[in-house]
Design a protein around this nucleic acid. Structure first.
Lengths: 204, 204, 204, 204
DNA sequence: CATGAATGAGAGTTCATTCAT
DNA sequence: GATGAATGAACTCTCATTCAT
C-alpha cells in the first residue's frame, strides 16, 4: 500500500503555497510552476489533487473565506449583546493571524478576479450575504431598519476599504488603527442613531 | 499625405478600449488582441503607440487617475470651507461619469496588480498621498491632529471600500447610497471631534 | 501593409507537412512541433491558421478526400458507359499521384481515428456515401438491384482492402496489380450477373 | 498467503480491457489510467505485468492475432478440399465472436499504428505471411500459379476491406453480407480460373 | 500482490512582440 | 500610419513510469 491519507495534507500545503505565491507574484504570475515549487512539490501534483489550476484557486479562496468564517463564528458565540456582535464580526476581520500583508494582497488579487470567474463570484456572494445578514441583524437591534441597513453597508465598506488599503501600502498592517477606526465608527453609528432608547428617525 | 495628429486620438482610443476590455475580461485576459479589436485597430498598433502592453496599462491607470484628479480639482476650487473641501474630494470619487461598474471593475483589477507592478505602484502612491494630504489638511481645520489623521484614513478607507464593493456586486452602483454613507460619516466625524468649535451641520 | 494572401499558401504548406509527418511518425506522434518543423515554420503558426491541431487534421483529411474526388470527377466525365464509370472510380483510387506509401499510411492513420473523432467521421461519411452512390448507379445499369448493391459494396471493400494492405507492407504500392485485381473483379461481377441481356437472379 | 497463479488471469483481464478501451477511446486516448480502470485495477499494475504500455499493446495485438489463428486452425482441420480450405480461412475472419464493432475498431487502430511500431509490424507480418501462404496453397490447387497468387491477394484484400469498412460504419457488422461477398468472390475466382478442371459448385 | 502518490517530460495552446510591406 | 504574418517563450495539462508501502 502506498502512503495513504496524504490528500488533506497535500491540499492544505498547496493552498498555503498558493496564497504565498499570489502574494508574492500577483494573480497573473502565480503560475503552477511557482506554486508547486513554493510547496516543494512537482507541478503535476496540482492536477492530481485539484484537477487543475482554476480548482486550486477556487479551493484557496474557499479556504480563506472559511478561515474568516470560523473566526467570526468563534467570536460571535462569545458576544452578549448587539454591540459585541458587531465587534465580533469586525474583530474577526482584523484577527492577527489573517490580517497580514500577504493575505491581504492575495485577497485583493482574488477580488480583482471575482467579477470574471463565476466560481469565485459564487463563493464571495455567499460570504458577503452572510456578513451583511449578521451585521444587519445586530444593527437592527440598535436602530431603525433603514438606518441599520446603511450601517451594515457602511461598516462592511469600512472593513473592505481598510483591507484593500493594507494591500496597497508596503507596510505591515496597523492593526491598532484598523480597530480604532472601526471601533469609533461603530461608536458613532450607535450614538447617532440610538439617542437614549428612542431611535432617532434618520433623514434619508 | 499622412494623417497628422493621430497620436493623441489613437492613444485615448486605445486607453478607453483597455478600460472596457479589462472590465469585460479581467486583467489576466485583457490581451492585446482583444484590446486592439475593441478599439477597432490591429494588434501591432499598441507597440507603435505605447511601446508595449505594460506601458499601455500604466498609461491607462494614469489616465484613470488623472480623470479623478481633474474632477477633484474642479470641485475643490469651488469649495469655501473645510467641510466643503472634504465633500468635494468625496464627491469627485462618486462622480457619475466615473462611478460605473465598468470603471470600478477596471479599478479593482488595477488594485490587484499594484502590489506587483512598480510602475503602477508609483502612480497609485502619488495619488494616494495627494488624497490623504488633501483630506488631512481639511480635517485638521476641524479637529485635533491625531483625530484628523484618523479621520482622513477612515474617509479614504470608506471611499475605497464603497468602490470595491461596487465592483463586486453585479448591479450598477447606487450613487445615492454612496453619497449618503460618506455624508453621514463625515457628519459624525465632525460632530464628535469638533467639541468646542461649533459644528456646522452638514448638508448631504 | 504586411505580406498579404499568405493564408492559402501556408495552409496547403501545412497540410502537406501534416500528411508527410503522419506518414513518417504515425498519428499519435505527429506533433505540432514536428509538423511545423517539417513545413519550415514555427509551431504557433498552426493556431494562427487553423485554430488548433484538430482543425488542421480535419483540414488535412478534407484535402485528401477532395484530391480523390477531383480525380474521380475528372475521370467520370470521360466515361461513356457504366463499365467505364466503374473503371473511372476505381482508377481514381489508384491514381499514381495519390497512391503512394506515404499517402496510404496517412489514410490508414486517419481511418484509425475516424471512429473517435466526429468531425473526421462526418467527412468520411460524406465521401463514402458518394462513392457508394456512384458505384451503385453504375452497377445498376449492369445487373439486378440487389446484385448491384452487393457489387458496389464488394468493389468498395476491394479498393479499401488494397489501400490498407499497401500501407501495411513496406514496399511502394504495386499499381499494376491493384488495377489487375480490381479489373478482374469488375469483369467477373459483370459476366456473372449480366449473362447476355437478361440479368441472372442472384441467390442470396 | 499470496494469491498464486494470478498472472495469466490478470494479463488476460488487462488485455481485454485494452481492446475495450481502444475500441471506446481510440488508440491515442487509450491511456493506462483508462485501461486499468476498465479492468478494475490500479494503474501501476500494467508495469508490473507487462513492463510498460507498449508491451501491453503488443501483447494485446498478439492475443487478437492468436484468437484468429486458433479459429482458422480449427476450421482448416475440418476442411476436405481446397475450396473448403479457403472457406475455412475466410470464415474464421468473420467468426461471430471476433467480428464485432469493438474488435474491428481495435484492429483498425492497430493497423494505423503498425507502420510505426516495429514490434507490431513484426507480429502482423508473421500473420500476413501465414494467411497468404494458406490462401495461395489452396488456390494453387484450383488454378495456375500466377492466377493463384492474385487470387490469394485479392481475397486477402477483400477480407481486410470488409473489416475496415465495418469499423468505419456505425452499425454492428452484417456478417451475412460479409460471407456472401467473399463467397461469391471465391465462386467467381474458381469458375473463371478453373477452365478444364471441372469447377465445383460452391455452396454459400 | 497491489496500490496510488509523486514525478517530469512533452504535448497543445496562448500571446506579446517584431517587422516587412 | 497601420497591418497582420510570423515567431518563440511560457503556460497549463496529460500521462507513462517509478516506488514506498
Amino acid at each position: 500500500m502506498p502512503k495513504v491519507g496524504m490528500q488533506p495534507i497535500r491540499r492544505e500545503q498547496l493552498i498555503r503555497a498558493t496564497v504565498a505565491t499570489i502574494a508574492e507574484y500577483g494573480f497573473a504570475d502565480a503560475t503552477i510552476a511557482r506554486i508547486s515549487r513554493s510547496a516543494g512539490l512537482s507541478g503535476g501534483i496540482i492536477s492530481h489533487y485539484f484537477g487543475g489550476k482554476n480548482e486550486l484557486l477556487a479551493a484557496t479562496m474557499r479556504w480563506l473565506l472559511r478561515e474568516l468564517q470560523t473566526e467570526t463564528g468563534r467570536r460571535l458565540r462569545r458576544a452578549n449583546d448587539p454591540i459585541e456582535r458587531v465587534e465580533a464580526i469586525v474583530g474577526a476581520s482584523f484577527d492577527t493571524d489573517q490580517f497580514t500583508r500577504g493575505v491581504s494582497t492575495a485577497w485583493l488579487a482574488f477580488y480583482g478576479q471575482i467579477p470574471h470567474e463565476p466560481q469565485l463570484a459564487r463563493l464571495h456572494r455567499v460570504y458577503m450575504r452572510r456578513l451583511r445578514s449578521n451585521l444587519r441583524h445586530a444593527f437592527r437591534q440598535l436602530m431603525a431598519p433603514q438606518a441599520s441597513s446603511d450601517a451594515a453597508e457602511g461598516m462592511a465598506a469600512m472593513i473592505d476599504g481598510i483591507w484593500v488599503r493594507m494591500a496597497l501600502v508596503d507596510q505591515e498592517p496597523d492593526i491598532a488603527r484598523a480597530r480604532r477606526l472601526t471601533g469609533e465608527y461603530l461608536d458613532m453609528l450607535v450614538s447617532r442613531n440610538a439617542a437614549g432608547e428612542k431611535a432617532r428617525s434618520v433623514a434619508t
